[in-house]
Simulated scan of single mutants.
Amino acid sequence: MSPERLQRINQMLDNRQPDLTVCLDKVHKTNNIAAVIRTADAIGIHQVHAVWPDIEMRVSGNTASGSQQWVKTIKHYHFSEAAEQFKRQEMQVVVTNFSESAVDFREIDYTKPTAIVLGNERDGVSAEAIAHADHQVKIPMIGMVQSLNVSVAAALMMYEAQRQRQLANLYGQRKLDEAYCQTKLFEQGHPIYAKACRRKGIPYPAIDPLGQIVADACWWERMRAPDPDAEPE
Rank of each mutant, 00 (worst) to 15 (best):
M223H: 03
N32V: 03
N97E: 14
H78A: 06
S67A: 07
Y171W: 10
I202H: 03
H190A: 07
D109N: 12
L20R: 01
G66T: 07
L20W: 02
K75F: 06
T21E: 05
I43K: 07
L185T: 04
V94L: 05
R224M: 14
M91Q: 03
Q47P: 13
N169D: 12
A196S: 14
I116H: 07
W52G: 08
I74M: 06
K75L: 15
V48D: 10
Q11G: 11
Q173A: 12
D25I: 01
R222L: 12
Q188C: 08
V22W: 09
A217I: 05
L176Q: 05
P3M: 06
M158G: 01
K200N: 01
N10L: 08
M57W: 09
S67R: 01
S147L: 04
V36R: 06
A50D: 00
V36I: 15
M144P: 14
D109A: 11
Q47R: 06
E121Y: 07
E233W: 11
P53W: 00
K26F: 14
E84G: 08
E4G: 10
V125S: 08
R16P: 03
E121M: 00
V117G: 04
I130L: 04
T30E: 13
D208V: 09
V51M: 04
R122H: 09
D227T: 00
V93E: 03
E107A: 08
P53A: 05
H28P: 01
Q85C: 08
I142N: 13
D104N: 10
E121V: 10
W52V: 14
S101H: 12
R122L: 06
R58Q: 13
V152G: 07
V150A: 00
H28D: 15
E81F: 07
E187L: 13
A179E: 11
M91F: 10
A102V: 13
D134Y: 05
